[in-house]
């Protein structure tokens, strides 16, 4: 996608940034240059033509920048005054500061050397725009895991994961078919068909150490696939509507009515209803209603016994 909005100011900014970029990438193709600045080739040629007319007062060939791009390759000489990149503005600096914090927390533990260098960069940048607050970015999942999961969900494809289970404290490799992403208690969970376990499994995505796209298993899990259809649940929100909306991904406009939710897992629905502390009620199916009432009563009895 190209930048469609062009103001004289945004073009001026681009031209000012173009000069040092070409000066440090002598002989770059117009096409590559257009791509980097996110404009069409025609726009880039128009930009270069404008620049070609600029220079120091006097404007003879001695003062004009020596810019050439006829061959499709761009070179620039005699651009001393503009050849240093412009300083970063505050928005750019904030973007880098948040990005750096994310990088620091995503680097593997054994690379303390790199963390140290990244921290020094944070120091350098924040002193430049006098941002006194700490800009924190804690990653939700290792590296690119989350993006790859979303990709697999869209394409309905299989992936192979390396997973650390805190329960057994082991690391295993599994072939899974992602079904849905759910957030609980500030953590994101992936519901998936696990070929290795031949069943539905739940994975906390920050514990997925590695994820690679994979071909589906040779012997498909027809039996499980059939089981793993979404079930509809009817719920009603009685209080704390914002929390309910966020937990169950409800539509804001229908909060006061009966809501239908779809899920692969009745366990998730049951836990979510419990965690709503009595602000959300299950209407259907009645089996789950009873189960929730009974298990809540059982816990109450234990409290009374203590």
């Amino acid at each position: 996608m190209h930048n469609s909005i062009q103001t004289p100011l945004s073009r001026t900014a681009r031209l000012l940034d173009l000069v040092p970029y070409v000066a440090s990438h002598q002989g770059i193709e117009i096409e590559a240059l257009a791509q980097n600045f996110n404009v069409t080739q025609a726009q880039m040629i128009s930009d270069l033509t404008t620049l070609w007319m600029c220079g120091l007062p006097g404007y003879t060939h001695l003062e004009l920048m020596d810019l050439s791009f006829d061959s499709g390759f761009v070179t620039i000489y005699n651009a001393q005054t503009l050849s240093n990149p412009r300083s970063l503005n505050s928005e750019e600096t904030i973007a880098l500061l948040l990005g750096l914090d994310l990088v620091i927390q995503s680097l593997p533990a054994e690379r303390e050397d790199l963390r140290e260098r990244a921290r020094a960069l944070v120091e350098k940048l924040s002193s430049r725009i006098s941002i006194k607050a700490k800009l924190t970015a804690i990653p939700s999942a290792a590296g690119s895991v989350r993006a790859l999961i979303e990709n697999a969900l869209t394409k309905d494809s299989w992936v192979e994961i390396t997973y650390h289970s805190s329960y057994s404290d082991t690391v295993s490799t599994r072939l899974i078919h992602p079904l849905e992403l759910r957030t609980e208690g500030g953590y994101e969970y992936l519901w998936a068909l696990c070929h290795s376990a031949r069943n539905l499994r739940v994975f906390r995505i920050d514990r997925i150490q590695k994820l690679v796209p994979s071909a589906p298993p040779e012997a498909p899990l027809y039996a499980v696939e059939k089981e793993a259809e979404k079930t509809a649940y009817a719920i009603r929100v009685h209080s704390r509507p914002r929390a309910a909306m966020e937990r169950f991904s409800l539509n804001r406009d229908s909060l006061s009515h009966e809501n239908e939710i779809l899920s692969f897992s009745s366990e998730w629905v049951q836990r979510s209803i419990m965690a709503s502390s009595g602000s959300v009620e299950v209407l259907e199916p009645s089996g789950l209603r009873n189960e929730i009432a009974m298990s809540a009563q059982a816990i109450l009895d234990r409290y009374k016994a203590h």
């Binding site: 900014a13 040092p20 970029y21 440090s24 990149p85 750019e92 904030i94 973007a95």
Partner: peptide, 16 residues
């Protein structure tokens, strides 16, 4: 901040 990050990157890559 995609755009801002990208223009920052262009500047950084212009430092030679």
């Amino acid at each position: 901040l995609d755009d801002a990050a990208h223009s920052a990157l262009t500047k950084l890559h212009s430092m030679g």
